[in-house]
Design a protein around this nucleic acid. Structure first.
Lengths: 193, 193
DNA sequence: ACGTTCATGTAAAGAGTTACATGATTAC
DNA sequence: GTAATCATGTAACTCTTTACATGAACGT
C-alpha cells in the first residue's frame, strides 16, 4: 500500500550520469532538480543500501582527496533497465496542493488585508523563483550543444518559468480584485475583524 | 517532527459552514476543494475523534431520514479560533512536484516519441481540468452575491484556470520543439531506442 | 436479485520530515 | 580557535494511501 516513492528512480537517474556518494547526490539535486523534487539524507542513505542489496547499484569504498572514507555508488545494467522502465511508465496525474489556495478558500474567516498579505507573499516567492529559473535558462542555453540531456533540462526550466509567470499574473489579478472590494467596503470583511 | 497535517483545518473549515457527518465531509470536498486538497476516510474519521477529544468539535448522534445512525459534528468556539489562527498563519512555500518533470528531466533515457506521449497525456489532462474549472466558474458567478465566500472560491478557480492554461501552453511549446528535433534527427534519440 | 449510496470505522505498510549523533578536514 | 564542508548514518514520529470489514436502505 501507500504510493511508491520516486526516490529510487531519481537516485538511479543521477547515478546514470556519473558515480557518486550519497552526500553528493544530495548536493547534485540541490543544484538541479531541487525545484521539482527533494530528498533528505534520511531517504538517500537507506535507499542506496536497498538498491545495492537488490543489485541495482554497486558500492565501492574509497579514500577521497581529503582522506575521508566515502562510498561511491555506480548504477548497474539492472539499475539502468529499472530506471528506463520507470521513465517509460505512464505519467502520474498532477495535483495542485497549495497552502495558499486552501487558506484563500477559507479566506472569509480572516480580514481582506490578511488575505492580501498572503497573496503578496506568494507573489514575491514566485518572482524570486523566476529569477532562479532565468539563471538556469542562461546556463543551459550555453550548454545545449554538449548533450541531449540539456534540451530536456531546458524544457523543465521553461515549465517552471511559464508556471511561475502564471502565478504572478494570478496574484496581480487577485490583489486588484481584493483591493477593489476593500475600497467599496461591501461586506468583504470577516465578521469581528 | 514530520510536518503537521492540514487535515484538521480543512475539516474545521468545512464544519464552520455547516454541521456534517464524516461521510458528508468527504462528499463536500469532492465537489469543492478536491482539486487542491483531498482526504480519505482513513484520515477523516480518526481526525474527527481527535478534534472532539480536544474540544474543537462536538458530536451528536442522530438517526437520519434513512433511519441510519449518523454522527453529526459541529465546530465549537475553540475550533473556530483554531481555524482562524491557522488561516492567518503565513502561507507555506509551494513546490511543484510533478512526475512529468522528473521523467522529462531523465528524458534522454527513453525515445523522443515516448517523451512526446508523456507530454500529450499531460496536455489532455490539463485540458480536461480546464473544462471542469469552466463549469465551476459559471456556477460561482451566479452565486457571487449570496456570500462573501464565493468570491474567495472564485479566486481559487481562477488560479486553476491560469495554471492549467500555462501547462497547455508549455506542452504545445515542448511538443513543437521535440517534433522539430525528431525531424532533424540530430541525435535526440536515446541510444538503443 | 443487484448495484449504488449512505455511513463508520480499522489495519498495514510505506513515505517523508526532523532531529540526533559522529567525526575528519579545510579555510579564515 | 571556530565555522563550514564533506561524509554517513539512525531514530522517532507523523502523514497518507490502500485495502479490508460491516451493514442498512433505496432504486430498478
Amino acid at each position: 500500500m501507500a504510493k511508491e516513492s520516486k526516490s529510487r528512480y531519481v537516485i538511479l537517474g543521477l547515478l546514470a550520469h556519473e558515480p557518486m556518494t550519497g552526500y553528493f547526490i544530495k548536493k547534485k539535486m540541490e543544484s538541479s532538480i531541487s525545484n521539482f523534487y527533494a530528498l533528505s539524507y534520511g531517504q538517500i542513505y537507506p535507499e542506496l543500501t536497498r538498491l545495492e542489496k537488490q543489485g541495482f547499484v554497486v558500492m565501492k569504498s574509497e579514500i577521497g582527496e581529503n582522506s575521508v572514507l566515502r562510498k561511491v555508488y555506480s548504477i548497474t545494467a539492472a539499475g539502468h533497465a529499472l530506471l528506463q522502465e520507470w521513465i517509460a511508465r505512464p505519467v502520474e496525474e498532477e495535483k495542485i496542493h497549495y497552502d495558499i489556495l486552501l487558506k484563500l478558500f477559507f479566506g472569509g474567516h480572516i480580514s481582506v488585508d490578511q488575505n492580501i498579505d498572503h497573496i503578496k507573499a506568494f507573489r514575491s516567492r514566485a518572482a524570486a523563483k523566476l529569477e532562479v529559473f532565468a539563471e538556469y535558462e542562461a546556463t543551459l542555453k550555453l550548454l545545449l550543444g554538449d548533450s541531449v540531456d540539456h534540451a530536456y533540462y531546458l524544457l523543465t526550466v521553461v515549465f517552471g518559468q511559464k508556471t511561475y509567470k502564471a502565478y504572478i499574473e494570478w496574484a496581480d489579478y487577485a490583489l486588484e480584485h481584493l483591493c477593489n472590494y476593500k475600497q467599496r467596503g461591501d461586506g468583504y470583511e470577516a465578521a469581528g475583524n
